[in-house]
């Protein structure tokens, strides 16, 4: 799914714009636990989250995530925006809840990771 389509499906506002809107997002994920993001995040994916602190952007940087969607119309504080602009991570905000944001994207064909095993997941 392209970033442009994602923004349209979520009726999202773009807060930090660092990717071509034709940029292809391979899959999606959602979490409010940053350790989960680090464990399951995958290159280029979009992360749906309800957290807006700067460490969300750091976590995305480390996990190779390129787009963060803040759900329930949350607007991140300026430190978060600044970090995203420094690093080059695209931030958008949507009025939908986490459940509905994920559902809409999944229904439109954006896949997830599939079943994951945490015990001895190989990279």
């Amino acid at each position: 799914m392209k970033i442009g389509e994602l923004a349209e499906i979520l009726e999202a506002k773009i807060l930090a714009d660092h990717h071509d809107h034709d940029f292809e997002i391979p899959m999606g994920g959602a979490a409010d636990l940053m350790s989960d993001v680090l464990a399951f995040g995958s290159e280029g994916m979009v992360l749906m989250t309800g957290l807006t602190n700067p460490q969300v952007v750091r976590t995305a940087e480390m996990a190779g995530i390129s787009v963060i969607v803040f759900v329930r119309a949350k607007i991140p504080p300026p430190e978060t925006l600044k970090l995203a602009n420094d690093i080059g991570i695209t931030l958008v905000t949507t009025g939908y809840t986490m459940y509905e944001a994920c559902g809409r994207l999944y229904a439109a064909g954006l896949k997830g990771l599939g079943p994951v095993k945490i015990e001895n997941g190989t990279w």
Binding site: M34, S35, D36, A39, Q55
Partner: peptide
Amino acid sequence: MGFGAGMGLANIKRC
């Protein structure tokens, strides 16, 4: 803030 789930060391080990 989304941290402190007790998964950090397990994550490090896995990686």
